[in-house]
Design a protein around this nucleic acid. Structure first.
Ligand SMILES: [Mn+2]
Ligand SMILES: [Mn+2]
Ligand SMILES: [Mn+2]
Ligand SMILES: [Mn+2]
Lengths: 227, 227
DNA sequence: TAGCAAAGTTAGACTAATCTAACAAAAGTT
DNA sequence: AACTTTTGTTAGATTAGTCTAACTTTGCTA
């Protein structure tokens, strides 16, 4: 069985390679940064994970997950997102509070627990941040996300997620009325100043394109028609 | 913040001193046995916990929890039992499955989580094994338990708990129809053979007095302890 | 009360995970 | 091609938690 630390390395590599569009491998420094450890520490661990056949890695080279490593990483991400959904749906946690606790809960070892939790939540497809929950059978579609910057003036989109999970960010956008599954209209754009005016729940605000880039809109899933 | 290991030592000491009637302290070997480590290991840790003012301990002496240590131990036990209740009530785990997973869940750090979980479960007083759940304010009444061996022939009692949480034991008594909050009648006793005949849900079985000693009947408040 | 067994401690070794400092390789720039 | 910067590795130290083996203290019992 893997240690919590080893699990965290697999998860980090998964996020960097399988969940970033147009990326297929990751360097040692990048992995170290993701985990907030020094490159020397990550270097050691990568050698160890290679020995366990969980990653492909050669000295001075980039790393990728093996099939086995990817399967384990996805299980951890699945647990993380199911727990986030539980905290949000059942215990009334807010958008920005769930992540930190899920970081701990994702390491609980019990296949039965996660099965039952999934059923209890009604087989959810997305977590409270709009991220796809990997399925138990290992099925996982990478969802290409459109951001608020892709919405034209006068158009309305549905908020489906964010790419910044920091408390500061989540609280700020919450203050603007922005939340999952809420319609958001782009009133006007000021390209010269890199700002756009939006309306959510009848309330107007101005946000920078930098911030807009972290807000995902719509999803290639049709929700009004049928499931 | 305490490590998981330190938390486990506090919990072990709590169980050995505050939850055993007529015991007020515990020896190093006893603590080591409870945690399944060698006495040498426990000896080291006891010194460390004394330094942190969580226990009273002198070389070659017995150990007890300080007020601070007891408060922390009770919080862990509270978390353990709330999680057991969650697994049993909400996720349909059986009596014998909850303990192992709760051993992991009890170490999750989030006061808000445990508050919300408690509310979600409707402020339960007892866990699925009939053990009292310590309250958030540190209130904890020690429940003196009467065993099946204290019930006379022809009398009926209510099953309120067990003192053996092993899977083997729980599955066996489950097979006899024995469960929490279920009436149980003692039909006859055979002291010569150390056996008694019982009836649960209309079904008769014979069990040894050795086994009967692990089944708690009725519930009487005897002594109360304050944090 | 002297001796021995049980209970408890200390010393030394090991593993996992981390760090800093020094070094090596790869990549980028003139 | 030579130099520089970035990236990555190795060596050595540190901390937490564990073990075994050897030692010490306590306390029972003959
Ligand atoms: Mn983690
Ligand atoms: Mn999420
Ligand atoms: Mn534990
Ligand atoms: Mn219990």
């Amino acid at each position: 069985m893997l240690s919590i630390t080893e699990e965290n390395y697999l998860k980090a590599l998964f996020r960097l390679t399988c969940e970033e569009v147009g990326k297929t491998d990751a360097g040692t420094n990048e992995i170290a940064a993701q985990l907030e450890v020094k490159p020397a520490t990550a270097s050691d661990m990568l050698r160890k994970l290679k020995e366990k056949k969980l990653i492909e890695y050669e000295k001075y080279g980039k790393s990728t997950l093996t099939r086995k490593g990817k399967k384990m990483a996805m299980e951890i991400v699945r647990k993380h997102r199911l727990w986030e959904t539980f905290l949000y749906e059942k215990l009334g946690f807010t958008w920005d509070e769930v992540h930190e606790v899920a970081e701990q809960l994702e390491h609980i070892q019990s296949p039965k627990l996660i099965d039952r939790l999934n059923a209890f939540l009604g087989n959810p497809k997305y977590d409270p941040h709009g991220d796809l929950i990997p399925r138990a059978d290992g099925e996982f579609k990478l969802v290409e996300k459109k951001t608020l910057n892709d919405i034209a003036e006068g158009e309305t989109g549905m908020v489906v997620g964010v790419s910044d999970n920091s408390s500061e960010f989540l609280q700020y956008v919450d203050g603007l009325g922005i939340a999952i599954n809420r319609p958001l209209k782009v009133i006007s754009r000021k390209p010269f100043d890199a700002i756009l005016e939006i309306e959510v729940k009848g309330k107007r605000s101005s946000i920078s394109t930098r911030l807009a880039d972290h807000i995902f809109i719509s999803r290639e899933i049709k929700k009004s028609t049928k499931a």
